[in-house]
Amino acid sequence: MTGEQNGPLSEASIEAMVADAVAAIAAASSIAELKTARLAHSGDKSPLALANREIGRLTPDAKREAGQRMGAARARVTAALAEREAEVASAELAATLASERVDVTLPVSRTPQGAIHPITGLIDELSDVFVAMGWEIAEGPELEAEWLNFDALNIHGDHPARGTTDTLFVEPVTAHQVLRTHTSPVQMRTMLDREPPIYVVCPGRVYRADEFDATHVPVFHQIEGLCVDRGITMAHLKGTLDHLARSMFGDITTRLRPNYFPFTEPSAEMDLECFACHGASVGNPELDCKTCRNEGWIEWGGCGVVNPRVLRAAGIDTDVYSGFAFGMGIERTLMFRNNAADMRDMVEGDVRFSRSLKGEAR
Rank of each mutant, 00 (worst) to 15 (best):
G3H: 13
Q5T: 12
Q5A: 14
G7N: 12
L9R: 02
A12Q: 12
E15P: 02
E15G: 12
M17W: 04
D20V: 07
D20A: 14
V22Q: 12
A23T: 09
A24I: 08
A27V: 11
S30Q: 11
E33Y: 04
K35W: 05
A37H: 01
S42A: 15
A49K: 07
R53W: 00
R53F: 00
D61C: 02
R64Y: 09
R64W: 05
E65C: 03
A66L: 06
A66F: 02
M70N: 01
G71Y: 09
A73R: 06
R74H: 02
V77R: 02
E83T: 00
R84G: 02
E85P: 05
E87V: 02
E87N: 08
A89K: 10
A91Q: 14
T96A: 10
T96N: 07
S99A: 14
E100K: 15
R101I: 07
R101H: 13
V104E: 09
T105V: 02
S109I: 14
R110D: 10
P112S: 11
A115R: 15
I116T: 14
H117V: 04
I119M: 07
G121W: 12
L122Q: 09
D124P: 00
A132Y: 05
A132D: 11
G134K: 03
W135Q: 10
W135M: 10
I137L: 15
G140Q: 15
A145Y: 04
E146V: 00
W147T: 15
L148A: 10
L148E: 11
D151A: 00
L153N: 03
G157P: 00
D158A: 03
T164M: 06
T165I: 00
T165M: 01
D166Q: 01
L168Y: 03
F169A: 05
V170E: 08
P172K: 13
V173L: 12
V178F: 04
V178G: 05
L179V: 04
T183F: 01
S184W: 06
S184Y: 04
Q187K: 07
M191A: 10
R194P: 05
P196K: 07
Y199H: 10
V201E: 03
V206E: 08
G225P: 03
V228Q: 12
G231D: 14
I232Q: 15
A235I: 12
L237M: 08
L237Q: 07
L241Q: 09
T254Q: 11
R255H: 02
P258D: 15
P258K: 14
P258C: 13
F261C: 06
P266I: 14
S267I: 11
E273F: 02
A276P: 05
C277N: 12
G279Q: 08
L287P: 06
C289L: 05
C289K: 04
K290P: 04
N294I: 01
N294A: 06
W297C: 12
W297S: 11
I298D: 13
E299P: 06
E299H: 05
W300T: 13
W300E: 13
G302A: 11
G302C: 06
C303K: 06
G304L: 03
V306R: 03
G323M: 09
F324H: 12
F324I: 08
I330C: 08
M335C: 06
M335H: 04
F336M: 09
N338V: 04
R344Y: 00
M346I: 09
V347D: 03
E348C: 10
V351N: 13
L357W: 14
G359P: 04
E360Q: 06
R362D: 03
